[in-house]
Amino acid sequence: MTPGILQANAITFTYASATQAALKEISFDIYPASVTAILGPNGAGKTTLLHLLLGLNRPASGTILLHSKPINQYTRHELSQQIGLVPQSEYVPFAYSVLEYVLLGRAPYLGPLELPGTNDIRIARDALDEVGIRHLEERALPELSGGEQQLVLLARALCQQPGILLLDEPTSHLDLANRNITLNILARMRANGTTVIFSTHDPEAAALIADHLVLMRAGQVLDSGSLEQVFTSEMLTRVYGTQVEVVQIDGMRVVKSMERLEP
């Protein structure tokens, strides 16, 4: 098997203000042009893990390799041309137009005093086309619906043209239709050669698209592997700490909670 494009080797991380490690001995490989879902309940350490993969925080021990080279040997500028991030939500205090906001994704390719040029605007418009919201480019960001804003964040990350895209809970506050739009975009990016890594607490979103799963609970990886290997009733019951069952309907995996609420 080819080595992973991104590899985590026994990484451990503790926040400065905490006594307990947020992540313990995490290891996995991410393969090029695949979709990996980091699946786990709230507070499992998914966002912390994404921040480590981004290079924002350094692990206390263990290494993260990007193209077989330790991630801390890249400059911030080099990293930003390779890894993009779609945060869970972005509070934008000012009313940027959609196009202006998406253009911020060109920052990794601009010098410190440079302004985006016509070529950057073309790339930004392509990114808007890619997520299907070109018609919104003149609109102010706060006026858009939650689903549209999520697509704008995605377009900004696409405009960055990263080889690896990290997404933090990209579907958690979307309705079903918008969730599927987002997942379809991720599938198209995979087809274009982008490596996609997203965190989610929603096993069905993961089952719809992920090639690989990393299952997390309380800062540890319980298991990782292909959908077929690890997406089982027993494993998900362990991950979520509540009785669940995986059932197949028309070849699609659906997760059913078996625990009844108190009357």
Partner: peptide
Amino acid sequence: NLLSLSDETAFSLGV
């Protein structure tokens, strides 16, 4: 503009 974004986003854009 980049500095008005959240720290994680600004970092991911190389700032």
